[in-house]
Design a protein around this nucleic acid. Structure first.
Lengths: 113, 113
DNA sequence: GAGCAGTGCAACCATCGAGTTGCACGTTGG
DNA sequence: CCAACGTGCAACTCGATGGTTGCACTGCTC
């Protein structure tokens, strides 16, 4: 995956995870291993339709995958994109850290002079 | 930091990072090491006031810190919360992974029987 | 084959938030 | 000292989106 694709992935994952209801859906989904929108709607305080929309967002972000079993649409969590985003975040944090220590070094050198 | 505080932190960081403009602000800020809202507004295609609001959000999320120098308010990035969120994400991804392999094992056992 | 689950689609509403503009206040430098 | 610069606060607009309800369709089951 290229760096640009990574950036897009990260953007989608972040905005998908920004919503509390979607995080709860992912929690419930992970707990079940596999579940339908109707089942999830039974556990969360929102309508089935709301769940369906959220699942669509999560699907676009690659955080869940769907497969049909007869008349049911079963969803599963997908960890890959989450790992990508976690790594991105770690890289950014490390980058900030090194920049900050560079600044600090400069400041100390200046006060030495 | 307790697990609950972590969850709150993560929620705030995620919704702060969900906005593309805020990510660009953080980028620019990291590049400068230290910058004022006015400077940032000069580099990004939004007004100073928009930057100010975003910086307030980022400050609440603990991703930046401000200090006054005369009539200026200088901002700096703060990596800590970002690392916390990255670790949280990694834990969740690992959790999903183990749940998925547990399911898979069950499925294989079932087909063996 | 009739009826019931379960899904999918569409229209609609309300709220939230990103962005703008205008103005008043403190700070600094000629 | 006053003029200009930078900041902070408030009011307003507007699009995105989370949520709802209603209905049509499809597949299971008796």
């Amino acid at each position: 995956m290229t760096a640009e694709a990574d950036r897009d992935t990260v953007a989608e994952v972040l905005s998908a995870l920004a919503d509390p209801t979607r995080r709860r859906i992912l929690d419930a989904l992970a707990a079940h291993g596999e579940a339908t929108a109707t089942v999830l709607a039974g556990e969360l305080p929102v309508s089935r339709q709301a769940i369906v929309k959220h699942l669509a967002v999560l699907d676009r972000a690659g955080l869940v995958a769907a497969h049909r079993a007869g008349r049911e649409a079963r969803y599963v969590v997908r960890p890959a994109r989450l790992s990508v985003t976690a790594r991105w975040m770690d890289r950014v944090a490390a980058d900030w850290d090194s920049r900050l220590s560079a600044i600090k070094r400069l400041a100390e050198d200046a006060s030495d002079a």
